Simulated assay, not measured.
Amino acid sequence: MHLYPEAGDPWRPRALYAAAHPESGVGRLGALPEQVGENVPAVPNAYVSTTVDVSPWAETEWAAILAHRGEVASERPLPGVPTRLPEAERQEMISTESFTRPTSGPVPGGPHRLTV
């Protein structure tokens, strides 16, 4: 703003979201992460402010995961863990993205569900 005052006020986002793994989603992995020595950081479900249905892109996301062949083939890295799930569970897991807003405490009214 001080460098180029003619540019006007700086742009500011109306909201900030951070990608999150809700406990319920991580729970679908069961004991798999622990069995391979992984820890998946998760937030309480009440802290998820928004979920987005990304099922139209699930096939592309799965192809991207599988493109990391070395990690998928290994037991330890997280990208390989979902490959051990039944296809229906895996499909459900990668069809929704969850986000949280940097606030303190649970989100009032629960998460907003967005469909793109």
Rank of each mutant, 00 (worst) to 15 (best):
S24K: 11
E34P: 01
E89C: 05
A31C: 04
L66H: 15
S55K: 11
A63V: 15
E75P: 06
P56G: 12
L29T: 01
N45T: 05
V40R: 11
H2M: 06
P10C: 07
G109H: 14
A64H: 11
T96H: 03
P102V: 09
Y17Q: 06
G37Q: 00
P102C: 07
I94Q: 09
P111I: 13
E61V: 06
V48L: 04
G70C: 12
L78K: 09
S104Y: 15
V54K: 12
A73P: 02
G110Q: 12
L114C: 12
P106C: 14
R101K: 11
P44L: 11
T115D: 10
T83L: 09
G70A: 14
V40S: 07
S95V: 11
R90W: 05
N39Y: 04
D9E: 11
V43Y: 15
V36C: 03
E34M: 00
P82Q: 11
E92M: 07
H112N: 00
P111N: 13
A46N: 04
A64L: 09
G110D: 09
P22S: 01
G30C: 04
I65Q: 08
T103L: 12
P77K: 00
L29Y: 00
A73R: 13
P22D: 02
N39G: 03
R101M: 13
H68P: 02
M1S: 06
I94N: 12
E97F: 15
L29H: 00
S104C: 13
F99D: 03
V26Q: 05
P10D: 06
Q91P: 01
L29V: 00
E71H: 08
R69M: 14
E75K: 08
L29S: 01
T103N: 10
A63P: 05
Y47G: 04
E34D: 01
A67E: 14
H112Q: 03
W57G: 03
E92K: 09
V26I: 07
G80T: 11
V116A: 13
N39S: 05
E38N: 02
Y47T: 08
S98Q: 05
V54H: 11
